[in-house]
Amino acid sequence: MNQIPMTTRGAEMLREELRRLKSEDRPRIIQAIADAREHGDLKENAEYHAAREQQSFCEGRIQEIEAKLSNAQIIDVTKVPNQGKVIFGSTVTLFNTASEKEVTYRIVGDDEANIKENMISVNSPISRALIGKVVDDVAKVNTPGGEVEYEVVKVEYC
Rank of each mutant, 00 (worst) to 15 (best):
D136S: 14
Q83I: 13
V141P: 12
G146V: 06
Q73R: 14
K79L: 07
T78V: 10
G89M: 00
L69M: 07
A67T: 14
T93V: 09
A129M: 11
E66R: 00
K101V: 14
E100R: 07
I74G: 08
P144T: 13
Q73S: 14
S99W: 03
V86C: 09
F88H: 05
E64T: 06
R128W: 01
V86E: 05
I87G: 10
A129C: 12
K85Q: 09
G109R: 05
S121I: 04
A139P: 01
G89R: 01
D110L: 13
I107H: 00
V103W: 08
E147V: 15
R106G: 05
A113C: 11
N118V: 07
I74N: 09
E102D: 10
E64Y: 03
P125L: 08
N118C: 11
I62G: 01
P125N: 13
K140N: 11
V135K: 15
S121P: 05
G109Y: 05
K68E: 13
L130D: 01
I120E: 00
E147I: 15
I115D: 10
D76I: 02
I65G: 04
V135S: 14
V103T: 15
N82G: 08
I120A: 00
N114K: 15
V122Y: 07
P81R: 02
I87H: 09
S70T: 14
I131V: 08
I126W: 04
A129H: 07
A67K: 13
K79A: 04
E100S: 05
I107M: 00
I74K: 08
I74L: 07
V86A: 10
D76Y: 01
N96H: 12
E147W: 04
I126A: 14
N123V: 08
P144E: 12
L94Y: 01
I126S: 08
A98R: 11
T91C: 12
V86H: 07
G84F: 10
P81V: 06
S121T: 04
T143G: 09
E117L: 15
L130N: 00
F88G: 05
N123P: 04
D110Y: 11
V141G: 12
G132N: 03
A98Y: 13
I87M: 14
I65N: 05
V138M: 03
S70Q: 15
E147Q: 11
E64Q: 06
V141D: 12
E64L: 05
V80E: 02
E100G: 01
E112V: 02
A129K: 07
K140C: 08
N71Y: 03
R128P: 02
N123T: 14
I62T: 00
V135D: 09
I131D: 02
V135R: 15
A67Q: 10
I107P: 01
K116I: 04
A98T: 13
V135W: 11
D136M: 11
D110W: 07
P144K: 12
A72L: 00
D110F: 09
I126G: 05
A67H: 11
R128E: 06
A139C: 03
N96T: 07
D110Q: 12
T93A: 05
V103I: 15
K116Y: 10
K133L: 10
N71I: 02
D76N: 06
E66L: 03
S121V: 04
M119V: 06
D136W: 10
P81K: 03
R106C: 09
I120P: 01
N142Y: 15
V80K: 02
A98K: 14
G109E: 04
D111Q: 13
G89F: 02
I115R: 14
E117S: 13
L69V: 10
